[in-house]
Design a protein around this nucleic acid. Structure first.
Length: 442
RNA sequence: GUGACCGUGGUGUAGCAGUUAGCACAGGAGUCUGUGGAACUCUUAGCACGGGUGCAAAUCCCGUCGGUCACCCCA
């Protein structure tokens, strides 16, 4: 018996190989359930963005690879090992965007937006790609909503961006904490680099191998190290804030003063450096705030991050243009929203369900449905179902407030039954007056 | 990219060499040919993929693909 079974199995296998479609590593579907969260956040974000004078921009998902290597920085991890890049049929080196700012800046330059009244304020939303090993809070495809302000240098811009984030998180009632730091301008960074190297001159051997490399390539990133030893050593290292030039110092002070004025709590974090090279002066992140989370975890699940990038437009070939921006991670915000036990506001919908029995009624119902849609009634149907019981079950499940029942008799008498699902009371009304009757009852 | 653990219907799980692969929820149909939130009945659907060892594999071994976690780093 078993032998036959096996032979049979093998025959089937030979006949057709099993093809099971599967999504790529680190990429997943956003089902309606999660989409509801996205919609909720996006609606709030877009509304806020518009209030602050931002306009929507759509930029390509695919760009020349060099756009990212030049903007984000050759030695950053994003570029070194996380780029989703390949050669296209025309032999071009292209990459799926790992973040939004580079593309927006490219668009700004390419479309001559420096000729528009400054600053240019843009927002975008879409998928970003990083070729990483997936983990909680880290996927190969994820979604960001971002804001960029191009052509404005004042600290007030930085503050406004932070304020917008603050307002957003307040509005969705998410507990967050603002981390802020100032990275200075290239001059400050040069000076800081010099001082850091001096500081680490005799301590270099105590650092982990990784940090020794960092010291050469981008010393700032030593502060990112999770090694206890390195943290210990770097905790006594000079802080960037001490090396700021007058201009940068003033800028930072103004930002902080404004935050104080607005009563936005913040945490001065001299270890906050961010993973992209283009940042200057102000950088900030919003971390989830929840008991039981260590700072390390909080930083790993950073919900939004941004800062000033005064040199990026220039680096990418445009005119000298000060700018700043911020991006929100939708997946992470959704995740944290659930972790903090927050609930989506209940949809206050007045669903009306149209049920029908029999062929003639079905035909009529098809027509009636269209009219009700035009009358702006939140109408649902299940014309594909025949049994009234099944239709009522569905109506109940989706939370319909009223059910319209159309059958043989009703069609003949040009009437229709309105059933109130709460009370169970039903009335027969004239089908021509249905819209008014529904509105009366909602 | 490195390391650890893990993949049984849509979901959550039982089985840990011989089972018609069990259960719950969800889905569909019906009891009731025109009345929901209950009950009952029937029903749909699964051992991630490929190979190996065995008389016999969901079960043991290897590889692949995915997932989770840690490192790295980021949203």
């Amino acid at each position: 018996m078993a032998k036959i079974g096996r032979q049979k199995k093998k025959q089937i296998k030979v006949k057709k190989e099993k093809f099971i479609p599967q999504s790529l590593k680190g990429m997943r579907d956003i089902l309606p359930e999660e989409g509801k969260y996205f919609d909720y956040f996006l609606e709030k974000l877009e509304k806020l963005a518009k209030i602050y004078g931002f306009e929507k921009i759509e930029i390509p998902i695919l760009e020349e690879k060099s756009l990212f290597t030049r903007s984000i920085g050759q030695t950053t991890d994003i570029v070194e090992k996380e780029m989703f890049s390949f050669v296209d049929k025309g032999g071009r080196e292209v990459a799926l965007r790992p973040e939004g700012t580079a593309g927006v800046v490219r668009a700004y330059i390419e479309n001559g937006m420096q000729n528009l009244p400054q600053p240019v304020k843009l927002y975008y939303f879409g998928p970003m790609f990083r070729y990483e090993k997936p983990q909680a809070g880290r996927e190969r495809q994820f979604h960001q909503f971002g804001l960029e302000v191009l052509g404005a240098a004042g600290p007030i811009v930085d503050v406004q961006l932070i304020l917008l984030c603050w307002n957003f998180f307040q509005e969705i009632k998410l507990q967050t904490e603002l981390q802020i730091n100032c990275l200075g301008c290239p001059d400050c960074q040069k000076e800081y680099r010099r001082r850091l190297l001096e500081f680490f001159r005799y301590k270099k051997r105590l650092l982990c191998p990784n940090c020794r490399i960092r010291l050469e390539k981008s010393p700032l990133r030593i502060f990112d190290c999770k090694e206890k030893k390195c943290q210990e050593i770097s905790s006594t290292a000079p802080s960037i804030v001490d090396c700021l030039c007058e201009a940068c110092k003033n800028h930072f002070i103004k930002v902080l003063e404004n935050l104080d004025e607005l009563e936005i709590p913040y945490n001065l974090n001299s270890r906050l450096v961010r993973g992209l090279d283009y940042y200057t002066k102000t950088v900030f992140e919003f971390w989830p705030s929840r008991i039981g989370l260590s700072d390390e975890e909080k930083s790993r699940f950073s919900l939004a991050g941004g800062g000033r990038y005064d040199n990026l437009v220039k680096i990418l070939g445009g005119p000298v243009t000060p700018a700043a921006g911020v991006a929100f991670g939708l997946e992470r915000i959704t995740e944290e929203f659930k972790n903090q036990n927050l609930k989506l506001p209940k949809e206050r919908r007045n669903i009306v369900f149209l049920a029908q029995i029999g062929e003639t009624a079905k035909k009529k119902a098809l027509h009636l449905f269209e009219n009700l849609v035009k009358a702006k009634i939140d109408i649902k149907e299940a014309l594909a179902k025949d049994s009234l019981k099944a239709q009522l079950e569905l109506a109940n499940k989706i939370g319909a407030k009223l059910v319209l029942i159309l059958g043989q008799d009703e069609v003949a008498h040009k009437t229709i039954i309105i059933k109130d699902m709460r009370t169970g009371i039903q009335e027969v009304v004239n089908v021509d007056k249905i819209v008014e009757e529904i509105k009366k009852r909602l």
